[in-house]
Amino acid sequence: MTTKPAAVHVPYTGGEKESLHACLDRHRNAVLWKLEGLDDERLRRPMTPSGTSLLGLVKHLGSVEYGWLRTAFGHETEPLWFDPFAGEDMSADQGETTAQIVDFYGRARAAADRTITEGSLDDLGTSWNGATVSLRWVLIRMVEETARHAGHMDILRELIDGTAGDHRPG
């Protein structure tokens, strides 16, 4: 899969952008940690009546990173092979490999990081629904979205093999 990301700690006295970015990275790393050690069948196994799976959540988070942190600010994204507005980002189709989805998330994350690094918290963009949003608001939204789904992934992982926790130990 991927190399293990280094532990990220939100600085106790950091600046606003640095702290928001570190918080987002901390939850992003938890998302990847939830995948470690599982085979393809368990990664894509639907664990809820709605079909939620670990790999489907990673695919969704990749599309959300592109949408909120690239498209909203007028930056290019890679072409998607699925339609997130039709809910196709929430499942891992059998034609998609685990590596394809995890790599997609990594590319989306790297592209989003460029927007964060190069931008100002007061930069304005336009969301998918036409609302004007600041980079500050989007970072808060992304922390919320990623933490929410990392929590879902924690529950799914515990149901799969008993592994629990919000972040990699140590």
Score class of each variant (00 low, 15 high):
residue 3 T to E: 15
residue 4 K to L: 13
residue 5 P to T: 10
residue 5 P to C: 10
residue 8 V to H: 07
residue 8 V to T: 14
residue 8 V to I: 15
residue 8 V to K: 11
residue 9 H to I: 13
residue 11 P to G: 00
residue 12 Y to G: 11
residue 13 T to A: 14
residue 13 T to H: 14
residue 15 G to F: 02
residue 15 G to I: 00
residue 16 E to T: 13
residue 17 K to L: 05
residue 21 H to F: 14
residue 22 A to M: 01
residue 24 L to F: 13
residue 25 D to S: 11
residue 26 R to C: 07
residue 28 R to L: 07
residue 29 N to F: 05
residue 31 V to W: 04
residue 38 L to M: 13
residue 39 D to F: 11
residue 40 D to G: 13
residue 41 E to N: 12
residue 41 E to Y: 11
residue 42 R to C: 05
residue 43 L to I: 03
residue 44 R to P: 06
residue 46 P to G: 09
residue 47 M to S: 09
residue 48 T to P: 11
residue 49 P to A: 14
residue 50 S to D: 12
residue 50 S to F: 12
residue 52 T to S: 15
residue 52 T to L: 13
residue 53 S to Y: 11
residue 58 V to E: 06
residue 62 G to V: 01
residue 62 G to K: 07
residue 64 V to L: 09
residue 65 E to L: 08
residue 65 E to A: 10
residue 66 Y to C: 07
residue 66 Y to P: 02
residue 70 R to L: 12
residue 70 R to G: 04
residue 72 A to Q: 01
residue 74 G to H: 05
residue 79 P to H: 05
residue 79 P to Q: 10
residue 80 L to F: 14
residue 84 P to N: 04
residue 85 F to H: 11
residue 89 D to V: 00
residue 91 S to H: 15
residue 91 S to A: 10
residue 92 A to K: 05
residue 99 A to L: 07
residue 99 A to I: 03
residue 102 V to P: 01
residue 102 V to K: 00
residue 104 F to Q: 05
residue 106 G to S: 03
residue 108 A to V: 02
residue 111 A to M: 04
residue 111 A to L: 06
residue 112 A to G: 12
residue 113 D to P: 00
residue 116 I to L: 04
residue 117 T to G: 05
residue 120 S to D: 15
residue 120 S to V: 01
residue 123 D to W: 05
residue 124 L to I: 11
residue 125 G to R: 01
residue 126 T to G: 00
residue 128 W to E: 07
residue 128 W to T: 08
residue 129 N to H: 13
residue 129 N to A: 10
residue 130 G to M: 03
residue 130 G to L: 05
residue 131 A to R: 15
residue 131 A to D: 12
residue 131 A to E: 15
residue 133 V to Q: 08
residue 134 S to L: 09
residue 138 V to E: 08
residue 139 L to P: 01
residue 139 L to N: 03
residue 141 R to Y: 11
residue 142 M to W: 04
residue 144 E to P: 00
residue 144 E to S: 11
residue 144 E to K: 03
residue 147 A to C: 11
residue 148 R to T: 10
residue 149 H to P: 06
residue 149 H to E: 07
residue 150 A to Y: 10
residue 150 A to L: 06
residue 151 G to R: 06
residue 151 G to H: 05
residue 152 H to W: 05
residue 152 H to C: 03
residue 152 H to E: 13
residue 156 L to I: 15
residue 162 G to H: 12
residue 162 G to P: 09
residue 163 T to H: 12
residue 163 T to L: 13
residue 165 G to P: 09
residue 167 H to S: 10
residue 167 H to R: 13
residue 167 H to E: 14
